[in-house]
Simulated scan of single mutants.
Amino acid sequence: MSNINWLQLQSRSQIEEIIEHSKSVPCLIFKHSTRCSISSLAQNRLGKGWALGDNEILPYHLDLITNRDLSNAVAEQFGIRHESPQVLLIKDGRCVYDASHLQISARSIADQVGA
């Protein structure tokens, strides 16, 4: 479907890993609902426009239906109100960019990363 090498975000301990990783490489969290057509559209649009390499960003995929509590923990940790679908770009341990619904685009993420 896309050339994004998603890492599955499935545990709270991974939030700390993301914070640590983001000190050397930006991390993206994509909150996706498998029951939402807009979420599927956003994921497809990301995949079609994706041009970032594995060494430029670590992309994490969070399934909201199976991991709602984890999604809430992400929102609380980074101080960003939960939306679905949603992307959060984490750099130096904090969220520096977020977008939701049809504002999600590979180009805007690449611009934020500096690619």
Rank of each mutant, 00 (worst) to 15 (best):
M1R: 07
I4A: 02
I4L: 02
Q8K: 09
Q8L: 10
S13R: 07
S13W: 03
I15Q: 00
E20G: 05
H21A: 13
S22L: 10
S22R: 02
S24C: 10
P26M: 14
L28F: 13
I29C: 04
F30H: 04
S33T: 02
S33C: 09
S33P: 06
T34V: 15
C36V: 05
S37I: 11
S39F: 04
L41Q: 08
N44A: 15
R45K: 13
K48W: 06
K48M: 11
A51K: 15
L52I: 00
D54K: 00
L58T: 00
L62P: 06
L64G: 13
I65S: 02
T66Q: 15
N67R: 08
N67D: 11
R68P: 07
L70S: 08
S71D: 10
N72M: 00
V74E: 01
A75K: 02
A75M: 15
A75H: 05
A75N: 10
A75Q: 15
E76H: 12
Q77T: 13
Q77A: 14
F78I: 03
I80D: 01
H82L: 07
H82N: 04
E83H: 05
P85N: 11
D92R: 14
R94T: 14
Y97R: 09
D98K: 03
H101R: 07
L102H: 12
I104K: 14
A106R: 05
S108G: 03
A110L: 12
D111F: 07
V113H: 04
